[in-house]
Design a protein around this nucleic acid. Structure first.
Lengths: 100, 100
DNA sequence: TAGAGAACTCTGTGTTGCAGAGTTTATATT
DNA sequence: AATATAAACTCTGCAACACAGAGTTCTCTA
C-alpha cells in the first residue's frame, strides 16, 4: 500500500478530513480558519485537490458577496479512505512489509 | 494540537512507526527495505530524526561488517504518540477546531 | 469616497526530497 | 595481488513544494 502524497500534506489532510466528515459543501472562509492557511495558500491547495479530482469548487454569489464552496468528490472520498487505511496500516505496524 | 512535520513526512513516519512498534534497535538495512528509500536518502532522514532527538544511531562491527542500528528514544516515543493522537484528531474530525 | 470583505492570482524565497555518484572499510573470490 | 561485493554513508545537484505577502476584482457599507 502506498501513501497518497497529495492527501498526506498537512493542510490538505485537514481540508480533506473536514470535507469528508462534513459530507457537504464547505465555504472557503470556513476552510481557511480551519486550516490556518492564508488566502493564497489555501487557494493553491484547493487547486491541487481539484486538479487531482478530489474536490469540486463552485463559485456563486449570495446577494452580492462572492462565495466559494468546496465539496469532496466520490474519487476524493475513495482516495481519502484509502489513505486513512494506509495510515492505520503504517501506524499499527500492521504491514509486515518487507519489500526487499 | 499541531502536526509534527518532522514525523509526518512519509519515509520518516514509516521509520518512526517501525521503531516504535519494534521497541528495540533496528538495522539500517532493515529500515531501508522497509522504507523503500535509497541509502543516501535514508541516511539523511535518520540524521533529521537524530537531530530532533527522536532516535539514536549506533555504529559497530559484527565480525568485520559494519552495522548501523537505530533505536527510538523516549522523546521520540512521546513525539510519535503525540503525532498519532493528532492524526486521530484530524481524521475523525474530533477537533471542533475553529481557529478564527 | 473611503474602507472592508471575499476570493483569488502572481511572484519570490526558502526548504525539501530525491536520485545518483563517489567514499570508506572489510571480507570473499580468483 | 587484484577485483568485486556489501554496508553505510556524504555530497552534489535538481526539481518540487509550501508559504507569505502583495496586488486585483467586485460589491457593499459607513
Amino acid at each position: 500500500m502506498e501513501a497518497n502524497e497529495i492527501i498526506h500534506q498537512t493542510v490538505r489532510l485537514k481540508i480533506m478530513s473536514a470535507l469528508n466528515t462534513a459530507n457537504e459543501a464547505m465555504e472557503f472562509t470556513r476552510l481557511k480558519s480551519l486550516s490556518g492557511a492564508t488566502d493564497g495558500n489555501l487557494g493553491s491547495h484547493l487547486n491541487t485537490l481539484e486538479g487531482a479530482g478530489y474536490v469540486t469548487v463552485e463559485k456563486d454569489f449570495v446577494g452580492k458577496k462572492p462565495r466559494t464552496r468546496v465539496t469532496i468528490t466520490k474519487a476524493g472520498k475513495q482516495a481519502f479512505a484509502r489513505h486513512v487505511a494506509y495510515l492505520r496500516d503504517v501506524l499499527e505496524g500492521a504491514s509486515t512489509g518487507d519489500a526487499s
